[in-house]
Amino acid sequence: MIIVTHNHTANRFEAHDGETLAGFAAYIRTAELVAFVHTEVDPAYEGRGVGSMLAREGVESVRAEGLRVLAVCPFIAGWLIRHPEYAHLEYRAASKVTD
């Protein structure tokens, strides 16, 4: 059974199958957002939903803290597109109009 945990020290969410690291989603945290920068799943676990579990746990954690998500990682960006119920959490830079 795959269990996802938050490794605060390493700044990443980790998926474990017993003692085996099945995958992780690394992030950089600021005062207002969490930028997911890289997601990696061990090839032995590909196609088993590990990446989606990492994305869901990470985004849910960000929501619980009242922060925003910046999806630098293409996997997390794609996951957010497929889950529009989290669109309100996506960080968007405020545009500045100059004359």
Rank of each mutant, 00 (worst) to 15 (best):
I76E: 02
A77Q: 04
R63K: 13
M53Q: 15
C73S: 08
R68H: 13
L80G: 01
E85Y: 11
I81S: 06
L89D: 15
L54P: 13
V59M: 08
L70K: 10
S61R: 06
L67A: 06
A64R: 13
E85I: 01
S52V: 02
E57N: 15
S52P: 07
M53S: 11
R56C: 03
I76C: 00
L54Y: 00
E57K: 08
V50A: 04
A77V: 12
G49Q: 02
S61G: 13
G58I: 01
R56G: 10
W79C: 05
E60D: 10
G51M: 02
A64S: 10
S61T: 10
L67M: 12
Y86H: 01
I81H: 09
V59C: 10
H83R: 05
F75D: 00
R63A: 10
A55S: 09
A55V: 05
Y86T: 00
F75V: 00
R48E: 08
L89R: 02
A77N: 15
S61V: 09
L89I: 14
S61F: 14
Y86S: 03
R63D: 12
L67C: 10
E60Y: 02
E57Y: 14
E60C: 10
L70R: 13
I81T: 11
V72N: 08
L80W: 04
F75L: 00
A77Y: 05
I81M: 03
V50D: 02
A64V: 03
C73P: 09
E57Q: 11
L67V: 08
R56A: 13
R68N: 07
A87R: 12
L70T: 13
A71K: 07
E65P: 15
C73N: 14
A87N: 12
A71Y: 10
A64L: 11
S52M: 00
R56P: 15
H83I: 04
R82Y: 00
P84K: 13
G78C: 10
F75M: 01
S52H: 02
V59G: 08
P74I: 01
H83N: 11
R68G: 05
